[in-house]
Structure formats: C-alpha cells, structure tokens
Design a protein around this nucleic acid. Structure first.
Lengths: 99, 99
DNA sequence: AAAAGCACTTTGAATTACAAAGTATAGGGG
DNA sequence: CCCCTATACTTTGTAATTCAAAGTGCTTTT
C-alpha cells in the first residue's frame, strides 16, 4: 500500500501548465498568442507559467519573425516530454487503483 | 481548437484531494488513519482536504466504532465518482491531443 | 493518575495564482 | 512624422491556496 501521489509532478498540478504541455506535445511549435487564445488566460498569467516551465527546462522559446513582425513560439524539450509522460503514467497508475 | 483545460475539475487540481479520491474509488471504506499513512500527510492537512471534498458532496463520512474505540471512515459518493471519472475523461482527452 | 491515540479545529505563515497595469519594440494608417 | 495598435512580456498588488504545528475533546491503555 504505497503512496499513490508521489509520482506526480508538482509542476503539473497547475492546470495552465498542464494545458500548455498537452498542447505542445501534439503541436511542434505554438505561438504565445495561440496558447493564450487556446487556454483563455491573460497574457501576464500565461507568461509567468511559461517562464516556470522554461526554468524547469520543459519548454524552449524561439524568438522569430513573421516578415518583420515578432513571433515567439514555444516547443517542448526532451526533458519536458519525459516529465510529462512520467506524470501521465503516474496518473494512470494512481487511477487504476492499488490496494 | 478548443480550450483543453475547461473540463478539468478545480477540486482535483490538488494532489492530496486527487489522491484521496483515487484511493476511495477502489476501496469501499477507508479510515482517517489509513488515508493519512497512505498519502503521507499531516492530519491537519488531510482533515481540511477531507472537509472540502465532503462540502462538495464528493465523499461521505461514517463515524463508527471498533469495539469502544472511535473509527471514522470515508467513502466516495455517486456524485464524487461521477466528478472523478469526468475529470479523468477530461484529462484523457486533453492528453490525447487536439488540433 | 498519567500518557497516548484518534479525529479533528484553529492559527499563522509561506507559497502560488491571478488580473491589471505598465513597458519595450515594431508596424501600419493618416 | 505622429498616433494607434499588436506582440510579448514584466511588475505590482491582492486574493486564494496550501501546509505544518499546536491545540482540543474524547477515550483507551498503563
């Protein structure tokens, strides 16, 4: 009878960070604005969560341009992918039940 | 391209509450002490999360006795089971990806 | 009678989350 | 050239959340 929640990643306790990751694992590159619209969050709020994901090495930022207009995109890193899939696995194990 | 996190239940953002629910869906009745040991939390912390789950109608409390000794057990309600499974479904959909 | 266990409640502090406002840079319209 | 807008933030301040620790009331064990 072991603790079911130890495998969960604290960073993914937050729904916005979880949402960002889930978007990024299926979409190669997503812009700041697209994330903002998808997740329906204020830009300040999104920015802080993106910073924390970046600080943990889970996502990468690419500052580019569309024509001459700035366009920042985000993508998941190897580490981020691993962390996310580990979290999902932990969730699945937790849900499946244990005695 | 709809918001992937809207289906998530705010109450289950917390790992302890999520852990309690995951234990209770597979175990009919679990005592306060067992939950405390399984989840490795302080009793005060556990108690507050149990209260919030109860206030939401997700769990039921049974104050009973083992011989003459008090024994409080917790079990999940219909509503709680539904809410939990809805949350899991939302998680699965989110993880599966969307474009 | 004293100590300890159970199931809490209360308190207080730290952390987290969030919206709103402000900032820097660039583009397009008049 | 000046203004307005957009992008991608940062800063600020507040509200909410989380948690450990201490306290409570009851009972059982020694």
């Amino acid at each position: 009878m072991k603790n079911p929640i130890t495998g969960l990643n604290k960073i993914f306790d937050n729904r916005i960070r979880l949402g960002v990751m889930s978007v990024l694992v299926v979409n190669e590159e997503v812009s700041f604005n697209d994330l903002k619209q998808m997740l329906e969050v204020t830009d300040g709020n999104l920015a802080t969560h993106l910073v924390s994901l970046e600080e943990n090495g889970y996502i990468k930022v690419h500052k580019g341009f569309i024509g001459r207009k700035t366009n920042t995109t985000y993508s998941v890193t190897k580490i981020g992918e691993k962390a996310f899939s580990d979290h999902i696995t932990a969730l699945e194990n937790m849900i499946k039940g244990f005695k």
